[in-house]
Nucleic acid binder design. Structure first.
Lengths: 187, 187, 187, 187
DNA sequence: AACTAATCGAGACGGTACGTCCGGTCTTGCA
DNA sequence: TGCAAGACCGGACGTACCGTCTCGATTAGTT
């Protein structure tokens, strides 16, 4: 066996990556810079992360600690909370810088694409399915709708606001929650 | 004065760029490869496009030839057509490869960000405003709603489906048109 | 027929070349810079000079207007005058910058090498032969020695002083004249 | 600390440079070609040599391993040996190709000029001073003459023969040794 | 006086090399 | 075996220069 890995090194890498992402964006991020700021060697990074993308992924898409959405008692409330969670995630400085870059890079790497999908999309859809199930149980919805479509309706506008329009998503959660809940029930 | 630029060179650059984007994606795109395929010198590229990003932008975001959306007679019809136009644009091979990369790179360049916003977002929003104005005139809507929000509702789910979920947007236009029209009128 | 060449353009090219050679050396000389300073187009240069090297050659090795060396009445005097002429040529700002560069470039071009040899070496050797013939006629020398060797003895130390040692050749003509004259007669 | 430089890489660079100089001359020498032939990356070259010129210098002006000239017992013998050493150096394929190019390029770079002077001129002059000192000790010379001048007399004709006249320096050492020795003692 | 043909300044063209920068791998010596 | 330091290969970047070419506008000599 030999010497065990130093967990302080793990953390130093992720912290340095987040800092540099916030300061210089995804394009300006270099592995050498991460190593220098973390005061470690490059080998220590590549021992943990196979590529730069995986390192960024690990640092910025804090894997899936999205908690199961609390039961607020109504579909509207539940949706609003979930949208707000997505907004919060997407507007953290590191994630805001990393996500578009990752979205671009994963198109060349099915392996990373799957990883990203699992940690990001699948988690959100799981929460969504849970929430929709509750609405069905409550009688707010006759049957659970297509999760992919609802996810697109919920996550899409957040992305469009932040990454396309480059605007702040303040107040978006409430408005979007109302619209989606209305679309699911009313129509 | 002096020798005028050769418009066949302009076109050769854009065509080569589109071809290589479709074949190898954004990450695999090389300025040297574009020059070689277009059978031109790199200088001819950099004389027209300050950076690789601007070249890709010019090639893939075929600036704004989005026509004013035809009047189909109803808000639902108009919206469906507009969504379909966005879907078509976003699923063309070159654009599909280029847009996520550009979205990532523009975060480091306000200049390119503004360019992208103008050619992409502003154009779509103009069409949208036109279309909403017609609905107001028809009496389908009491007053024109927030264009940013409607744009996010319209473009966001397309992006989420294609780039986040990595799924085909077949049939999305109809479903999304119905949902957004319903949200605007019904609720 | 057609429009005749403008001789002011000829001169402007050579003047600009000499100026830029004096200011920036051979390595820093560009054809574009010559055109700009001369306020002419590049085509006007290439209509007159096939390559940059030939342009420099024409500008800095003012072809062969080395006059036949005057008869000073003695081998020593004649040699001193000839050495001084070489020194003067080699220390003019443009020539000083151009000659090493040309010497380097002609090694890849037999055509230019021959041109340079004719305009530079052959001219000096002709003067030398003339001068040695007079010395034989005077009885100072029994027979005319190997011109190549004497030329190397005369021109070589000038080159070594200026280009190898990078020193001023002040006073070199007298000392070198004496040494070579001594070597030819005494030994 | 860190990984030490690989001395095989050093040698591979210099060997490749010498080979390419001999084959294609100074003008045809490319840093990429050196890297390819040496089977190394360009970075490994630029880590060692700041510019292409310095690389060529290191490869072709094999720094100064000119040994102190052996004592042949006479000024004539010593001079002949020293001239022959200069001839040998200057006619090695790599050096013959490199020296004129370097002589041209150093005129734009005082730093490289100083380097070249030290490795080439100073070394030859040191050998010369040694040799002249011995002649004084032997009583062949009354006092040691100006080293710059003697150096110009010794190295200059070699350069003139090889680079100006573009002739082979065969037999030059004996003839030049005799002439210079004669000039120093006889006159 | 009109036509012809070569010139002019300006600057775009293809090609090639430069020196820099990064990603991912490998190699030191120390702990 | 892990670690910091840093060298290694490969390959793209954006710049610069060469020699050629194409514009529209002159400027002679020829009809």
């Amino acid at each position: 066996m030999g010497r065990p890995r130093d967990s302080r090194v793990d953390e130093a890498i992720l912290t340095a990556t987040r800092g540099l992402l916030a300061e210089g964006g995804y394009a300006g991020l270099t592995v050498d810079a991460v190593a220098e700021r973390a005061r470690i060697g490059k080998a220590a990074i590549y021992r943990r992360h196979a590529t730069k993308q995986e390192m960024v992924f690990a640092a910025a898409v804090h894997s899936a600690d999205l908690p199961p959405p609390p039961d607020t008692g109504s579909l509207l409330g539940d949706l609003t909370v979930l949208v707000q969670e997505i907004v919060d995630h997407v507007t953290s400085p590191a994630a805001a810088a990393a996500i578009p870059g990752l979205l671009a890079d994963i198109r060349s790497s099915p392996e990373l694409a799957a990883r990203f999908h699992n940690a990001f999309v699948t988690v959100q859809q799981a929460g969504l399915a849970e929430l929709l199930g509750r609405a069905v149980a409550r009688g707010e919805l006759p049957s659970s709708p297509d999760v992919d479509l609802v996810h697109a309706l919920v996550a899409g506008p957040v992305f469009a606001t932040v990454y396309l329009q480059n605007r702040s998503p303040d107040g978006l959660a409430e408005r979007l929650g109302r619209i989606v809940a209305g679309a699911l029930t009313g129509a």
